[in-house]
């Protein structure tokens, strides 16, 4: 049986995607990035139960974590429910589908450079199986209160707390999280949704999670040029989010028609500009920081009751 589609179709639940129940399988665990970050995730406290590299089944990572030839075997043997992918771009789409087909509930794809054509086929495949995809081209997520991380976000900059952070960027997220931590504003969960034009989890999905999450008291949303995900997030905030939200948009000085590093960060035909996104947030009363170092003070005034670490 090559594809058994064992997972059941169902409504996405709205509990945070990673917590103490997370059982992680690393796809591409024997590669340079996969092995480095597998060790980092385990060291932080993530329950790393398995690795997958086709052809290397039967061996062990770090002398402790079993490696399998397929995600299906890994799930059967270890009960893995979350996967993180470090395989090369040409193989990433297949790795995502494999994880979902094996019954993994959350698939986090770190890989950068996955063709859009592949993603257009992957997204409905995962929806059919009721699995959530984060990424691709994302840093993953980290939940400091539970001490769980899936991806590459550096654990050294986070602090337990109650600010939810969601962003399309990697290092800009680190910058903002670092500033929050220095200001004593710990984080509930930080989620990097990725910089590609077609991604599995968008701002609205994360806002819905943070709104329902009891640990989260305030939300920081970091957007950038390209697409209309921020505008849609603004409309959603107006209707459904009662918790305070603060935002920042990168790319105000980006020239039109040029791809700014991220495949999705491009202003085309006058749409996707930073100005439009800032206006959309302002119109629904979401404060927009002019510069990253303004974010902490905007959070402090938007959420005066926020518990702060000393």
């Amino acid at each position: 049986m090559l594809a058994d589609s064992r997972s059941k179709k169902g409504n996405r639940n709205v509990s945070m995607p990673i917590d103490r129940n997370t059982r992680l399988v690393v796809q591409g665990i024997t590669g340079r990035d996969g092995s480095f970050h597998a060790a980092q995730m385990a060291a932080y406290g993530t329950n790393l139960v398995a690795g997958v590299t086709p052809g290397k089944g039967g061996s062990k990572f770090d002398n402790t974590v079993p490696i399998f030839d397929s995600v299906h075997e890994a799930v059967d043997a270890t009960g893995a429910n979350t996967s993180v992918i470090y395989v090369r771009a040409p193989f990433a789409a297949d790795a995502i589908c494999e994880a979902a087909d094996a019954g993994v509930r959350l698939v986090v794809c770190i890989t950068e450079g996955v063709p859009v054509r592949d993603m257009l086929r992957v997204v409905p495949f995962l929806k059919e199986r009721g699995a959530r995809l984060l990424g691709p081209n994302c840093p993953g997520l980290i939940a400091p209160n539970a001490r769980v991380k899936v991806g590459i976000l550096p654990a050294s900059i986070v602090q337990p707390g109650s600010v939810g952070v969601v962003s399309r960027s990697g290092t800009l997220t680190y910058e903002v999280v670092y500033q929050l931590t220095r200001a004593g504003m710990g984080q509930s969960t930080c989620i990097g949704i990725g910089g590609d034009p077609v991604i599995g989890t968008n701002f609205i999905d994360c806002l819905r999670l943070f709104q329902a999450d009891e640990e989260t008291e305030a939300i920081v949303l970091i957007g950038e040029i390209g697409g209309s995900d921020e505008e849609e997030a603004a409309a959603f905030i107006k209707e459904k989010v009662s918790k305070p939200v603060v935002s920042f948009i990168a790319g105000q000085t980006a020239p039109p028609g040029k791809r700014m590093g991220h495949a999705g960060a491009i202003v085309t035909g006058g749409s996707g500009t930073a100005a439009d996104k800032i206006a959309a947030f302002a119109a629904v009363g979401v404060p927009v920081a002019k510069i990253p170092s303004e974010i902490t003070s905007l959070v402090a005034s938007a959420a005066p009751a926020l518990k702060r670490a000393s």
Binding site: A265, A274, I291
Partner: peptide, 23 residues
């Protein structure tokens, strides 16, 4: 390093009255 931080850095140069030469 990183596209988002690179954009934010350009924006910050402009914010403080300078002109970025590149992304």
């Amino acid at each position: 390093n990183g596209a988002g931080l690179a954009m934010a850095t350009m924006d910050l140069v402009k914010h403080y009255g300078g002109q970025p030469a590149n992304f």
